[in-house]
Amino acid sequence: MPQDLPVDPRGPRFSAWMTTVILAVVLLTGWWRLLAAQTVLFAMCAFISLKLNPWGHVYRFAIQPRLAPTTEREEAAPLRFAQGVGFVFALVGTLGYATGLTTLGQVATGLALVAALLNAAVGLCLGCEMYLLLRRYAPANARPQ
């Protein structure tokens, strides 16, 4: 898995706001193809590189130049882990909507939205906070190394 360099922490916050909007649209419309696209985006960021996140590029080119510079940096590993958690919820949500299990789709999408909104609004990474719990109850062969 390629390593990402530490990033300006305001970039992931912007990305989390965009994810929140997308997930809210999915909940309101039930448009599962949009959720499927978000699932692919989560997967690319979690398993390949954060550089593949288009919201990161929007932030760098359209927003960052308008903000005061910062020396603060955030490590990539927690961000990628959070994207992985988002991927799981979004995948379950997509499968739920696509197979007619709408309630499952709504619950999974709602949980992903909660995590994205907490990240965007207060900078809290719910998946990272729950890492120890997830690890404790994850099957041995599914634990991150």
């Binding site: 909940l27 309101l28 709602g110 939205l113």
Partner: peptide
Amino acid sequence: TGVWALVGAL
């Protein structure tokens, strides 16, 4: 129900 799901999530 999508609206209620959104309100619940918020």
